[in-house]
């Protein structure tokens, strides 16, 4: 790693001030950023650790919404997110236990890895990403591979998930990395069904609108039978080609809907 300073502010305001320095970067749980630094793929002058900000940690229910602090670990979401069972189940299967004890929801969403689990939950749930300066709808937030609507130095302070009538996440695990080879999150709300796909597209998480239309009319696995997910723009790598991933999208969507029944 190149040399850098680490600071641990106690409040969001202190963190925002620290991040205004040139080449400063926010550090969540570090489960992606630290390996990146070791490979010298990033060279910040200062890391602003968000793990000391107590206000950004924890899970609470606000009516029909589950509010999760940006600094909340996957392990905490798994154990305390029971009001939204599909989300807690997703969190309980990210990485491994030690990774879940450090990695945070805000870090995952800010990074927007194309194979990460949380982006699919946020997009399918129509979540709101709350930062130190504004609120961003999930539909506007995810903007491509490792790209989000966040400005330089902007911090995710919490994420608001409307709790759906039914939801399920199906992850086809890439066993070496434990990321999703393909993951599909299906979420049924009063105004329709949303289907978000991670691990598949070269542009990161996306909504499969054909399946959403079909499932909003008939929420059963059969509703997807006549559809084909397009392989255009899907990833091809040594683990699977675009056609294979397209096939998985349909299979996992059906499994997710079946699991909701």
């Amino acid at each position: 790693m190149y040399a850098f300073d680490v600071t641990r502010p106690k409040t969001v305001d202190e963190a925002v001030a620290a991040l205004s320095q040139e080449d400063a970067q926010a550090l969540g749980g570090g489960q992606t950023l630290i390996p990146t630094l070791k490979q010298r793929l990033a060279s910040p002058s200062a890391l602003v650790s968000l793990t000391g900000i107590e206000d950004m940690k924890g899970v609470c229910q606000d009516g029909d919404t589950l509010v999760i602090g940006g600094g909340t670990t996957h392990g905490t979401v798994a154990s305390e997110g029971g009001a939204y069972p599909a989300l807690a189940a997703l969190a309980s299967n990210i990485g491994d236990p030690a990774v879940r004890n450090r990695g945070t929801i805000g870090g995952s969403l800010a990074n927007n890895d194309p194979s990460a689990c949380y982006p699919s939950a946020a997009l399918a749930s129509n979540a709101t990403i709350v930062t130190n300066s504004r609120e961003i709808a999930a539909d506007d937030y995810f903007q491509g591979l490792f790209t989000t609507a966040l400005d330089e130095g902007e911090i995710i302070t919490s994420v608001r998930f409307p709790i759906p009538q039914a939801a399920n996440y199906q992850k086809f695990v890439q066993p070496a990395s434990r990321f999703a080879l393909v993951g599909v999150f299906v979420s049924k709300h009063a105004d329709g069904v949303r289907v978000a796909v991670t691990g598949a597209s070269e542009d990161g998480v996306f909504r499969w609108s054909d399946a959403e239309d079909a499932l909003s009319g008939n929420f059963s696995p059969d509703a997807v039978d006549g559809l084909t997910a397009s392989a255009d723009g899907l990833m091809t790598d040594l683990h699977g080609d675009a056609e294979y991933r397209a096939h998985l999208i349909k299979v996992l969507t059906k499994r997710a809907v079946a699991a909701c029944q």
């Binding site: 680490v6 550090l27 570090g30 489960q31 630290i34 390996p35 890391l47 650790s49 392990g75 236990p97 030690a98 990774v99 004890n101 450090r102």
Partner: peptide
């Protein structure tokens, strides 16, 4: 809590 000490400062 269990953590990987190679991935924490």
């Amino acid at each position: 809590v269990a953590v990987k000490s190679c991935t924490m400062f």
